[in-house]
Design a protein around this nucleic acid. Sequence first.
RNA 1: GCUGCCUUAGCUCAGGGGUAGAGCACUUCCUUGGUAAGGAAGAGGUCUUGGGUUCAAAUCCCAAAGGCAGCACCA
Length: 655
Amino acid sequence: MPQLTLPDGSVRDITLPTTGRELAALLPAALAARAIGIKVGNEIRDLASSVTEDAPLRVILADDRDPDALYLLRHSAAHVLAEAVCALFPGTRLAYGPPTDEGFFYDLAPPRAISEDDFPAIEAKMREIIAADRPFTRCEYEPAAGLARTAGDKYKTDNAERALARGAPRLSFYVTGIPGEGWEDLCAGPHVPSTKWLSACKLLAVSGAYWHGDQRSDRLTRIYGTCFASEAGLQAYLRRIEEAKQRDHRKLGKELDLFHIEEDNPGQVFWHPRGWTIYLALMEYMRAKQRQYGYVEVHTPTVMARALWERSGHWDKYRDNMFITESEKRDFAIKPMNCPGHILIYKQGLKSYRDLPLRIAEFGSCVRNEASGALHGILRVRGFVQDDAHIFCREDQVESEVALFCRMLTEVYADFGFGAERIEVKLSTRPAQRIGSDESWDRAEAALANAVRAAGLSYAISPGDGAFYGPKLEFTLVDALGRGWQCGTIQLDTNLPSPERLDAHYIGEDGQRHPCVMLHRAILGSLERFIGILIEHFAGRFPLWLAPEQLRILPVSDDHLPYARQVRARCQDAGLRATVDERADKLGAKIREARLMRVNYFAVVGAQEAAAGTVSLQDSRGQRLGAMPVEALVQRLREEVTARRLPAPDPASAA
RNA sequence: GCUGCCUUAGCUCAGGGGUAGAGCACUUCCUUGGUAAGGAAGAGGUCUUGGGUUCAAAUCCCAAAGGCAGCACCA
């Protein structure tokens, strides 16, 4: 006998058959009025559908916190969008309109180009449809009859054929309004009961997309929008988008004078003094961490001969992404990865099992010929530096090495404020095309899974996503706005060290040669990208230990310049990055400038301070910290640097 | 790379077939000040680039480059 779980957690036995509406009627009236669908097992269905199977049941209420509710709302909103576009642009053909994580889109082929200027008209039409409170009605047809309804429309016919190929017994259409009269679209559903639920709805963007994602296929117009159960939910979402815009690392990078990218040299970063200060602090931090975890650091050539890339397999598989050059009729390539170089270092001298594991690290400067459309600020560039390392070990050392790596990684992430709750781990397992025995894949996958668990992290499995030569772990950070950024990775590789490839081996206890297992790993990923993420995560307000300008001393007038310089000298001697604002501006202007530049602390010095040997301290948010002797200031800041203290969470952050 | 949109002063942007505009920043001068912008004057532009239409193009058309969004890519 199936059971219905009520919103308060209580459970009721249900007699079959029943319908969604009957289930909703079992809820308190106030909740029943918000019912928009049901969940049968893992399947979301229309409120009007009937239930005949024994499965856990739940009524879906219009609620911004319920992903199933948002799914229903957004899927339905996509339909209303499509109807509005069809009404305003007769002749529009529809391809595909699914919900997404944050909203929905509809791919369609309008008779003329649609731009954001058309949004007000489309939204007005949508509001009209929504205000009309028209029911979504499901109509099912036998395959032949259903296909007849899509005849002449190649997109819908294709969708219908695909649905049948996936085993759908019948084709379903949804009518908004009265069947036979209302607007109709081929759709598997499910939908909300009526258009009235879709009032918190907004169009966001328009762009191009290809049919089936194929560049050679038809080009379609994709209109993006989102929908929430409540106006409050929609407004909160729009505020979050606005906040993300304010934190955009490209905007802050310019405003805070951290870096720039030359128009004539796309995809490579010119780091300015302030940005480079962050870069160096980050690199020195990682260098110390690596030393602590038993890594040795190396440096390999930027340009290497074609023969080496042929042996590593890159010339074959990765050439399109490599910058290639020549000298005296020989081909060379700028390195896109560091692994071959590290193997060459490993192979200098015969290695014993006693030498393993050997952890070789490099701040590896890589250049990849990324497609122009992929470039994005400093998050996706052509030239970047990886905190790369390769661990050479025996197979029986894999698990402990991965565990050690996970420990190091969680320690590093925590230092930037990403605790376990802000780390998502994905384990990519064996693909269909692979080398190696099933037993060795079993061992490798289990080793990675055990190591992640040992680090106190949970993980999701991504079946079949591993490389052909080994499984991998990918670590995604969730930032202050709840967005995910993939940074760390560790990948098991038995291919590159094999005798057929670069032949990295060791002499075992048995006196025989054995191929190494190699672990490719990175924690930050690329320094460029990681700094971009930090800029957005901290909204430009870096922790003191990373900040380009930790303290700015603001003399009240020129008379106090000598004292200000004296304070600066003391702070610099103590290793702090301190400056003096020497401009002939009034104090208010100096404070404004210091705050706009997110200088962590600024110290006002005037006659009182000079006489007392103190400063009046304030932080970048304008918090007054009072007068304190210069030595107390130095101590306070040094302590904060040493502890790598994080800034207080930004009140504007959503997540 | 593909599609669409965008490109005007160092920055943020307005304008628009017929002497190129604002705010901020910059330079100089005045002001020496106490917690988010003191005042005045000045300088600053091949309106991304190349073609075309026109008596006349920064403006309209075509192309290229770069940027933005999305797609594809990210072993």
